[in-house]
Simulated assay, not measured.
Amino acid sequence: MTGVGIGIVLRLLHDGERDLEQDLLTAAARHRADHEFHHVALDVARWSREHAARLADTGRDHGLDLPGPRGNPSPGALAALREKASQALGRREETGFLLLNDLRDLHLAAARNSLHWEMLAQAAQATRDERLLSLVTDCHPQTLRQIRWTNTMIKVLAPQLLAGV
């Protein structure tokens, strides 16, 4: 069992990774017509799911009872409706703005998680917790890649949508 601070950061990061996974899955479904975005979002959502599962395991060593990954929502009428709407909208300007907005929110969520990973790394070094440091070393680079991906997508879309280039 460790200090309260590490437990707080573990919980914040766990919740942040679970939220980011859900946000990525929602955005992937919303923008299904944009195949590149859709598939990459699903891939990077899997990273957040894995991070949350590993954080839940690590949390037990620190006296926390963190829930495992959320179950994937079953495809129902709402998912089918989203897919039809996505196909109907295609790559219209309005959908581009919606995608840009989603990318901004995803970027900020990933950046928040990255800061929590950094805090956890510093605490792991200070307490010489090799298991915690190993977790950060494995997971944080993927979070940084999520940030770079959203940033790159924003750089590509923003000029087209905002300046009409």
Rank of each mutant, 00 (worst) to 15 (best):
Met153Pro: 00
Ser74Thr: 06
Trp117Gly: 02
Glu93Val: 13
Ser86Phe: 12
Thr152Asp: 06
Ala121Asn: 08
Ile154Glu: 12
Phe97Tyr: 15
Val165Glu: 12
Leu42Cys: 03
Ala123Leu: 15
Arg145Met: 12
Asp105Pro: 00
Leu120Phe: 09
Pro75Arg: 15
Arg145Val: 08
Ala158Leu: 07
Asp105Tyr: 06
Arg18Gly: 13
His38Ile: 00
Glu130Asn: 01
Ala29Met: 09
Leu13Phe: 05
Val4Cys: 01
Asn72Glu: 15
Glu83Met: 08
Thr143Met: 08
Gln87Asn: 10
Asp57Phe: 02
Pro73Cys: 01
Ala53Arg: 14
Ala28Thr: 03
Leu81Trp: 05
Ser114Phe: 01
Asp43Lys: 10
Asp65Ala: 05
Leu89Arg: 15
Leu42Tyr: 13
Leu161Ile: 02
Leu24Gly: 04
Leu13Asp: 00
Asn72Met: 04
Leu106Glu: 06
Gln87Phe: 07
Ala45Tyr: 06
Ile8Ser: 02
Trp47Ile: 04
Pro73Ser: 09
Ser48His: 12
Ser134Val: 04
Leu10Val: 01
His140Arg: 11
Leu98Glu: 14
Lys155Cys: 06
Pro75Thr: 14
Arg148Asp: 15
Gln22Ser: 13
Trp149Asp: 08
Glu36His: 09
Asn101Asp: 13
Leu64Gly: 03
Ile6Cys: 15
Asp65Val: 03
Phe97Ala: 03
Arg49Met: 04
Arg18Phe: 03
Ala123His: 11
Asp34Glu: 13
His116Phe: 06
Thr2Gln: 07
Asp65Pro: 00
Ala80Tyr: 04
Glu93Leu: 15
His116Thr: 02
Ala109Asp: 04
Ala77Ile: 10
Ser86Ile: 06
Gly3Val: 03
